[in-house]
């Protein structure tokens, strides 16, 4: 077992430590508030020249499409088989803040994202910023997708462009005040946006690949990690299970503290959906398995290897 630690956000500031007196602290606080406000109204984008010379890799784009589970939200509700490649949107995602409705991301130039630039797409995927410079709500898991590279974004875009266009217009989200104000998302991003990996340490190449798939495109933590009152992930309880946002049941703990399956069990489950008792994956996990079954045996083995080195939930809560 490799030594592994959960990353913690660095909040200590030598500048603040150096300041003495209430007045100085107040000034610093005011600056922080103004700075926070500035950040909040400034959606982030990728670097201007980040896409220069980037060659999209269609095969990798397809892998990321399935690892990312794009179709699970963006295909029409109830779509089966080939229909899942038509990303017309329309699925309602209930949450404590209201319902989010997945938009059309098919290559249709009007209803979908057909006329977006690659930079627009990368901004959306990696930064949660729309082409009009607006914040996206984190129901779109860009905080996980942001672990992908700009090359990955270009590759995924290239794959999405090969899928059928659909003219169905996107529907607005159904959010109550104040969550209907997108500005608030900027504050959310400032408070919770992840940078780097959750699980750090001396990881093997396989474990690193698994970490990329789980923490990045697979966005497993978005459901399997508990959230605080503001909807931010509790990174110190990474993958330790959470209430189901649908209100029914609980999304399971998949750290070694809650899941005693072997790596082979996990890999088989992600391929065929068979549990070690030869029951099948249920609920939304059935859709996840359908997506992950498109990946390679190596990819699934890497996910399993990574899950084995996630800090066990008991160690986190004690």
């Amino acid at each position: 077992m490799q030594p592994v630690a959960l990353a913690t956000r660095n909040t200590a500031s030598p500048t603040i430590d150096a300041m003495r007196g209430v007045g100085g602290t107040a000034i610093i606080l005011a600056l922080v508030v103004v700075g926070a406000g500035w950040y909040a109204i400034t959606p982030q984008t990728i670097d201007q020249d980040a896409l220069d010379g980037v060659e999209p890799d269609l095969a990798r784009g397809e892998m990321l499409f399935y690892a990312g589970g794009c179709a699970s939200c963006h295909a029409s509700p109830g779509a089966e088989g080939e229909e899942k490649l038509v990303l017309a949107g329309g699925l309602r995602l209930p949450s404590d803040f209201g319902a989010f409705v997945a938009p059309n991301i098919s290559p249709d130039p009007d209803a979908g994202i057909g006329n977006w630039s690659d930079a627009d797409f990368a901004d959306a995927l990696l930064k949660g910023t729309g082409p009009q410079g607006q914040h996206y709500y984190p129901a779109f898991p860009y905080d996980s997708y942001g672990r992908m590279s700009v090359e990955d974004a270009a590759s995924l875009r290239a794959f999405l462009a090969t899928l059928p266009p659909d003219p169905t217009p996107s529907l607005p989200h159904e959010l109550g005040f104040p969550f209907s104000i997108r500005l608030g998302v900027g504050v959310w991003k400032m408070l919770f946006a992840r940078d780097g990996w959750v699980v750090e340490g001396d990881l093997s190449e396989q474990q690193q690949h698994g970490r990329f798939l789980v923490e990045g495109p697979g966005h497993c933590g978005e459901c399997h990690t508990p959230r605080n009152a503001l909807g931010g992930l509790q990174l110190d309880a990474w993958l330790s299970g959470a209430p189901n946002p649908s209100g029914e049941g609980r999304i399971p703990d998949i750290t070694p503290g809650g899941l005693d399956w072997s790596e082979a069990d996990i890999a088989e489950y992600l391929k065929s959906g068979f549990t070690p008792d030869y029951d099948t994956a249920g609920g939304e996990m059935a859709d996840v398995v359908e997506n992950i079954s498109h990946l390679s045996d190596e990819d699934r083995a890497a996910i399993a290897a990574y899950l084995k080195i996630v800090p066990p939930s008991a160690a986190v809560t004690n």
């Binding site: 189901n244 029914e248 049941g249 609980r250 391929k271 065929s272 959906g273 068979f274 099948t280 994956a281 249920g282 609920g283 059935a286 398995v289 359908e290 079954s293």
Partner: peptide, 19 residues
């Protein structure tokens, strides 16, 4: 893979979730 998909497809549509 296809065997599991066949089992799962029927359960998804016709079996009550166990939550």
């Amino acid at each position: 893979k296809d065997l599991g998909a066949a089992c799962g497809a029927c359960h998804k549509e016709y079996r009550q979730p166990d939550d």
